[in-house]
Design a protein around this nucleic acid. Structure first.
Length: 592
RNA sequence: UGCCUGGUGGUGUAAUGGCAGCACAGGCGACUUUGACUCGCCUAGUCAUGGUUCGAAUCCAUGCCGGGCAGCCA
């Protein structure tokens, strides 16, 4: 290894970063501020990770901030449980990478009244997220300001209270290829609109009886400009705002203003919001706001093969008990991936490698798997474990004798350390590593054949012991102890090297072998995705592990040599009863 | 038969009028006390047709194909 310093990770380049760079060069904003705005109505998944890495990535590259903001304007769907899981997932995903860019606000703070360019204004700046007195941003903390802005829109003649019910509103809206018609309530006076809207807020009307609408253009070819609703009446309490409100703003109205209140410069979202951009700009521009306005830019969602991403579909998998919960290691949720042992760095590497474009793409899950293996190969400590044990007796080693061996912990390290390993008369080897009738080019153990026990010595297969059912119960071999490391015949070559575990110096563990949840690349395209669930997505075995694994801790990653990467399950493991999850197999060109 | 948006190897992505490159996947080989890692080589692409230009993936036109848009969801 050369002594030159490791080159810094290449800064990704994409069309959004180009725009940000141009805005920085033109000094259009005092500071670059992005935001990650989940609705707390479900768990985060790998698709969100793309947005998180883009938003936080831009913030850290530009010395800016990325606010975590809960887009919680629909009290019917949101819960505090999701706030907690999302916050934890975001923190985990950016830990050690962009912690310093995480924008939180002072606990309980609401946008303060300030003066910008000589005009009254509202602003809420991010603070250090590490203190106890900091919390994520909530759109629901802006309900007061949003209400004030709505009154202003009414005063400006740009919004009106509409008495049409949902069904009639839809009829008046027309269709994509058919212009809509003006609501009969479109021309109410400012005074009447003000009065009605205040009474909506006061709770005088039942759910759905009236709404506040923007006054734009019912004949616009863009459906989202046909007087979209700004507020609806919902007599239900809000998990964060309490029972103060019975009118709640809609996304298009609340989002752009939330961005503005926080001083967001670049508001990044997915492609389905392209038609909404005109509305985003309309609200901001028609309010005559004094500070530089945020702008919305859209990019394509991440769609990996062999996975299902929508909250609705994941929820169904949970409810139908196809998986054990939102954090089931087979799920693409952040909490599932974490539990499976995937490092956050691998997720970041993956989403960065797929790029950011406006092309509706499908990403081969193999790209993800490659990123995971690359990270784990670098960092995971190697250990020996046998998943499907077969007893092997080394007839020339006396019972009770221990042949001391030494194993490398991680060959990828510059100065690899070692650990002691005990070779004994009886060991376990992998059932797959012995074949009584070997296929062509089989490198492993066969009758009369030789193979190396990794970190120990070469052995020769002398005889097989079978039971009445003709099943092999024991393989009897001779150990060539002079082929151990440091011994005269250490350099002797054999074609195969297999892993093993001493039968007396080992521990038992439950090992869960996970595989893809679906059998087809695009389960979402199937008539019913439950029909294409992989029946072998989980296999549970009782394995034999080298005894040093007895002190494994959650969060540590191991490579079980020749098998794959494994991590202790943080939920189901108990003292003395470890449960390991297989994060991913090693690449296996022989199996193909 | 409306509007918006997109189309580069199998997949993803770069080239911003000037040598079509990279990654993943696939194939072959070298190395190997992990059939891993690493290394080398190979396969394979600009949706189509015209036009502008010394020169087009890039600009223009037409066509073809895909995605999105009619929640008081986000």
């Amino acid at each position: 290894m050369s002594a030159e310093p490791t080159s810094p990770a290449p800064v990704p380049n994409d069309f959004i970063r180009d725009i940000v760079a141009a805005d920085v060069a033109a000094q259009r904003h005092a500071k670059i501020v992005t935001r990650f705005p989940p609705e707390p109505n479900g768990y985060l998944h790998i698709g969100h990770a793309k947005s998180i890495c883009l938003n936080f990535g831009i913030a850290r590259e530009q010395g800016g901030m990325c606010n975590l903001r809960f887009d919680d304007t629909n009290p019917a769907k949101e819960e505090i449980e999701y706030v907690d899981s999302i916050t934890a997932d975001v923190r985990w995903l950016i830990a050690g990478w962009a912690d310093h860019c995480l924008g939180f606000k002072p606990k309980g703070a609401h946008p303060g009244k300030v003066t910008s360019n000589g005009q009254p204004d509202y602003y809420l700046a991010p603070v250090d997220p590490s203190g106890l007195s900091a919390e994520p941003f909530y759109a629901s903390d802006y309900f007061d300001q949003l209400y004030e802005y709505a009154l202003e829109l009414i005063r400006r003649g740009q919004a009106y209270v509409c008495d049409l019910n949902a069904e009639d509103t839809e009829k008046y809206r027309g269709a994509p290829d058919k212009p809509g018609q003006d609501s009969p309530f479109r021309h109410r006076s400012v005074a009447e609109n003000l009065d009605l809207f205040q009474r909506m807020k006061a709770g005088e009307f039942p759910d759905g009886a009236r709404s506040l609408r923007s006054k734009i253009d019912m004949t616009s070819p863009n459906m989202w400009l046909r007087d979209p609703l700004l507020y609806r009446i919902r007599h239900i309490p809000h998990y964060h705002a309490g029972d103060k409100w019975c009118i709640y703003p809609l996304y298009d109205y609340a989002h752009c203003l939330s961005d503005y209140l926080e001083g967001v410069s670049h508001s990044l979202c997915s492609l389905e919001f392209v038609p909404h951009r005109a509305l985003y700009d309309w609200v901001l521009e028609n309010l005559g706001l004094p500070r530089p306005l945020p702008h919305q830019y859209e990019f394509a969602k991440l769609v990996p093969t062999y996975t299902l991403l929508s909250k609705r579909n994941i929820l169904r998998l949970v409810q139908e008990k196809v998986v054990a919960g939102w954090d089931d290691p087979r799920l693409p949720t952040i909490s599932g991936l974490r539990r499976r042992g995937i490092p956050a760095s691998a997720i970041r590497k993956f989403v960065t490698s797929v790029g950011v474009t406006t092309f509706n793409s499908v990403t081969d899950i193999a790209v993800f798997e490659h990123a995971v293996r690359e990270e784990l190969n670098q960092s995971a400590a190697r250990r020996l474990a046998v998943l499907r044990p077969v007893r092997l007796v080394l007839t020339n080693i006396p019972a009770g004798e221990i042949v001391a061996c030494s194993a490398t912990n991680n060959p990828q390290e510059e100065n690899p350390t070692t650990r002691p390993l005990a070779l004994t008369r009886e060991v376990f080897i992998e059932a797959d590593d012995f074949a009584e009738v070997p296929p062509p080019k089989y490198f492993r153990l066969k009758p009369g054949g030789e193979v190396r026990l990794k970190y120990a010595c070469i052995i020769k297969c002398d005889e097989l012991v079978k039971d009445a059912a003709d099943t092999i119960t024991e393989i009897r071999c001779t150990a060539q102890l002079d082929t151990r490391h440091g011994q005269p015949n250490a350099d002797k070559k054999v074609k195969g090297t297999i892993h093993w575990v001493s039968a007396t110096q080992c521990i038992d563990a439950v090992v869960r072998l996970y595989d893809r949840l679906f059998t087809v690349p695009e389960p979402g395209a199937a008539e019913d995705f439950l029909q294409v669930v992989n029946p072998k997505s989980l296999e549970v075995v009782t394995a034999k592990l080298e005894s040093s694994l007895g002190i494994a801790q959650p969060g540590e990653r191991y490579q079980f040599e020749r098998l794959g990467y494994f991590a202790l399950d943080p939920k189901d493991s108990a003292p003395g009863q470890p449960v390991f999850n297989r994060t991913i197999t090693l690449r296996d060109t022989w199996a193909k």
